[in-house]
Design a protein around this nucleic acid. Sequence first.
DNA 1: GAAGGCCCTTGCTCCAGATCAAAAGGCAGG
DNA 2: CCTGCCTTTTGATCTGGAGCAAGGGCCTTC
Lengths: 259, 259
Amino acid sequence: MFAHSMLRPISNDRCALHSCSVCRDASPELRAELERLGRLRICRRGETVVGEEEDTPFVGNVVSGVLRTQKTLHDGRQQIVELLLPGDMFGRVFAHTSRVSIEAASNVTLCCFGRAGFEAVMARFPELEHRMLLSIMEELNAAQDWILLLGCQTVTERIASFLLILRRRALRPCAAAATPGAFPIIRVPICRRDMAAYLGTTVESISRTIQEMARRGVLRIIDPQNFEILDERRLSLLSGRDATEKPFEHVATRRASIA
Amino acid sequence: MFAHSMLRPISNDRCALHSCSVCRDASPELRAELERLGRLRICRRGETVVGEEEDTPFVGNVVSGVLRTQKTLHDGRQQIVELLLPGDMFGRVFAHTSRVSIEAASNVTLCCFGRAGFEAVMARFPELEHRMLLSIMEELNAAQDWILLLGCQTVTERIASFLLILRRRALRPCAAAATPGAFPIIRVPICRRDMAAYLGTTVESISRTIQEMARRGVLRIIDPQNFEILDERRLSLLSGRDATEKPFEHVATRRASIA
DNA sequence: GAAGGCCCTTGCTCCAGATCAAAAGGCAGG
DNA sequence: CCTGCCTTTTGATCTGGAGCAAGGGCCTTC
């Protein structure tokens, strides 16, 4: 029987992340160091990489697939706090116990670094520590954006925002190479249940809202995980984040104003 | 007429934060450096320290009072993303434009550092950069905790959690000195409108919920900003975060289970 | 000391979205 | 191929909390 996850050293042509993760722009010495430390690991969908309140033996980045980091209340309610796509880092340096559980939302390939080893490299390469600082600041920006989304946007706005975020990610240089020419198609890499846990709503509401968007001609449902964007302008308006939308003068409320 | 905010150098006995902010445990040289760079600034309630999408000329920490960092949607809906209490840092190093607006939720005293100057000190003192990394990681933890709160907790749970967080902050060593012996009293340093914008709800819901808690004997309302905790155990249960609460086996839903 | 603004509270109404229920399709394992 | 499980969708119902309105108290400004 195989171990339920496999570890192996990174051979030069394995980790395709050199151009878009911690390794990007790293000096040759640092890159060599990281390559020596890194181990590829494959996890199947549903597998837990790090448990909540558990020790975090390693950090790393996602090579392919999607990780979810989530928190669970004692009565079982769950909230996905972050989705980690290829190129994103997972795990926290200097943090002995994880404040979230990290699970595979799809089959994933990870590039893992032992936490102690990684910290040692950080101590020797200030450029790495600096890069980590910037990376965590970016993560904080995203988290604060999510707070806005959960705190005062409707389910429709959340879903539209989510689709647009996925789209922007897919159009980023290093990801675009992976899905060439698929311009108006958005691929949602997670199931409805995970979408619900991420967006702070339920599978039923998501299903209804997306079907409604399709009826209104905003998008076409190719299959439950793939949509063709028919009217990006309108999707952007639905997201409530459109910059061209004129500010209203009336008193702000918690709910969206009637569109 | 006075400038609407005043700047002055920190004299040795002015900034009381040596023991609990960036300065804590700083080497004497670093501390001297920061003291030379720091300027005290006083802002009145409602004043904007840094506007959304504006340039951030400085970073710093809160000496007294409360700052709120908030985001605004184009139709005017607002969400407070963070409350910064004495000892907390505001502003982002290396970030040229702010992603939030930073405003005084009460009269505040700030200790400000020019951003460029602070970054220069960081470059010379790795211990400072490291401390910043840890500080931002802590901020990220708090933000992710807030995502859980907004994503799947009821208004009652949010309020109870908020009160308990304030309580824990007030009991922390360096803050406790400021309010000695005030054990069962929670002071809420912000108005209902800010509470609502922070907790993702409305002033009416907050008012009703707190009154209900008082009717049930969980707390006593001394005045709208001061509460005496009568039953901490029950408050903790209401927060939905009590560790002793037994996990249910039934299917988890988005709503709280009937208590 | 009068006026205007906030701030907080409370009653009433209404609705977005959660919950409950059920059915159909797909996939993995035996 | 059958069985069981999971995913997605759709319909029907219910409710937590938002919206609206109004009243009283306090503070600041003129």
